[in-house]
């Protein structure tokens, strides 16, 4: 399996979105293209709007599930506690004896002939839980935004580095290729990255609340 950003062509992504249109609240249309925000003339207002659009990805369970507020990741569109109960451990990769890698390999793995509602086990070479200071669970988009900009709470990244991270990091990209039976985050990583880039360019203004 290739990494999503490279393998999911726009057409395929659109098709995926179409197929998911009957799903839950998150299965909306894809992400709006950044250009659609050009009509907003006030840079601050535009920056907020761009971030709110990117928030469709950021606050999607696919992303929040691994940015938990506690020591256990979440699972599923209902964001229930991860089963089996795995704990973040000192390095956010689980605890000795049961690391993330005990179940999650380098790639998504299709499950064949078992539970009908569990079609695959997610995978990525660096599968881990976001550090606790990067917790998103239970936070508003505005709070997450402030947090993303704060080097104390974003892994010491500059805003430019945040843009690169969002646009190119392959673990972020997993959200668009979460494996069979799992709803992807909307849009494409390319569009998402561009939304973040424009948000920064317009002043990286955070939504209030």
């Amino acid at each position: 399996m290739k990494h999503p950003r490279l393998s999911l062509a726009g057409g395929a992504a659109a098709l995926a979105m179409l197929m998911l249109s009957a799903g839950g609240a998150w299965a909306q249309e894809g992400l709006k293209a950044p250009a659609e925000f050009d009509q907003i003339t006030d840079p601050s207002a535009r920056s907020v709007a761009l971030f709110e659009e990117a928030g469709k990805v950021i606050q999607h369970p696919r992303c929040v599930n691994c940015h938990p507020a506690g020591d256990r990741p979440l699972q599923g569109m209902d964001m229930h506690p991860h089963q089996p109960p795995v704990f973040r451990g000192e390095s956010n990769i689980g605890m000795p004896g049961m690391m993330c890698g005990t179940c999650h390999g380098a790639e998504n793995v299709e499950i064949v002939g078992q539970a009908a509602d569990l079609k695959s086990i997610p995978g990525h070479p660096l599968w881990h839980v976001a550090p606790i200071e990067m917790a998103w669970e239970g936070k508003t988009l505005g709070q997450i935004c402030v947090q993303i900009k704060d080097p104390e709470r974003n892994g010491g990244k500059t805003l430019d580095e945040i843009v690169v991270h969002m646009a190119e990091d392959s673990l972020v990209g997993w959200g668009w290729n979460p494996g069979a039976g799992r709803e992807p985050v909307p849009g494409t990583q390319e569009v998402f990255g561009e939304l973040i880039r424009r948000w920064v360019a317009d002043g990286a203004v955070c939504p209030t609340g």
């Binding site: 089963q83 089996p84 109960p85 078992q114 539970a115 009908a116 509602d117 569990l118």
Partner: peptide, 13 residues
């Protein structure tokens, strides 16, 4: 239900 993910067993914790 179909498996241990939705038919929970008590665990050590």
């Amino acid at each position: 239900q179909s498996n241990f993910h939705d038919y929970r067993s008590l665990r050590i914790n």
